[in-house]
Design a protein around this nucleic acid. Sequence first.
DNA 1: TCATTTATGCGTATATTTTACACAAATGTA
DNA 2: TACATTTGTGTAAAATATACGCATAAATGA
Lengths: 229, 229
Amino acid sequence: MKIHQNIKVAVDAVVFGYSDNKLKILLIQQKFGSTTNKWALPGGFVKDAETLEQAVIRELNEETGVKANYLEQLYTFGAINRDERARVIAVSYIALINPKNYSLKADTDAIDAKWFDINDIPKLAFDHKDIITKGLERLKAKINYQPIGFELLNSKFPFSDLENLYQTILSKKIDRRNFRKKLLSFEILQETTEFQNIGSGRPAKLYKFNNKKYRELEQNGFHFEIKFA
Amino acid sequence: MKIHQNIKVAVDAVVFGYSDNKLKILLIQQKFGSTTNKWALPGGFVKDAETLEQAVIRELNEETGVKANYLEQLYTFGAINRDERARVIAVSYIALINPKNYSLKADTDAIDAKWFDINDIPKLAFDHKDIITKGLERLKAKINYQPIGFELLNSKFPFSDLENLYQTILSKKIDRRNFRKKLLSFEILQETTEFQNIGSGRPAKLYKFNNKKYRELEQNGFHFEIKFA
DNA sequence: TCATTTATGCGTATATTTTACACAAATGTA
DNA sequence: TACATTTGTGTAAAATATACGCATAAATGA
């Protein structure tokens, strides 16, 4: 094949985390090089012998040390001048992580990595702001019809965590009782014998997401779906 | 930037059409060259100076002569050996067209283009079968929450057409009265004074999709959504 | 130790939405 | 003119979503 094409292929990841009742995004900063000082999404060029997904996983590990709990292709950005240096198209992914499970290998290599509150994102390189916007839209839509929110929480969690997670991501209030009723009606949450006890207030029973049960139900035509006006 | 990467970027389109109460897909066949005889999705390599979307539009026009009514990025396929000749990643799109509006420029150039019934697709080149599968999934999901079905019909259509369209795409029966009631409740359909009269049976009133009204409503928080068990 | 504060856990009544279902009207055809 | 074919319409029952109040279990501090 004799195609003369001068286009590079990169991958970028919108990595969501949830801590302190806030939705966060993982960003990196090159310490040296042309784009110094601007924060950007983790990502990089795809190697000839790896798939797109392998590339994201590798870059995420190299640049931040984290491994995604959940990874899903988001969108491919192909504007002609999105990178001033060359024609680069970016295949973007969204990833979900529980930040508690990793300590960022900040200051390693030539790269700094940090979690940013979704509402407090610095100026970003390239069109990465757009990518985040698209990623957030996808996340907002998706937690309503796929049980992926759990990937952001500890494996055992109190109902209030789940509740807060949904309220934070969707930026709206949800009635506690109705939320609980709905989630429990799915029968994909497993009650544990443990309790969480933070300061004052009645201790909360901890629940686990029962993935196996979920997949069983899904096979029988069940469809996870939440909707709160 | 000194990246040595030997990856080509292509675009492919899953073009849906609807005629004779059947869902169809537009395929092409190269008459000469290495992939002769195998049918494939319309598409081709992206030029250095065009966006991905421009590339799809151009290729669609060159290879089949059609112009999409609706175009949406689908997914990017990046398996290492999806094309035996070289490393090629494909950014795929879905397009909706009313076949009646175009006569395919079949037999022109070195390319043959034809509509195939979705249930009668020949053996395809590369991973194009997978792309179609993904495209169909997307279409099935999307007609339920975006009014894109109209793009496949004449601008004035009887309710039965819309009904059949949904039943065909979703491969399930939908109660005529409930369907009509739901659609009319949105107030995005405009009744015309015209009637359609095909052979026997009571003549059907023709309706138009009121795009302007739809966008207005959307701005005020309205959300198109159909759901039939 | 007892009243107060804070957070969890549960039930019920009402409104809204979805589903199920049958027959009359308007045309073409034999 | 009887019959076949397609369009067009209403209502009752079931399921789901929403709104809302109070008891329970712990920590805190007077």
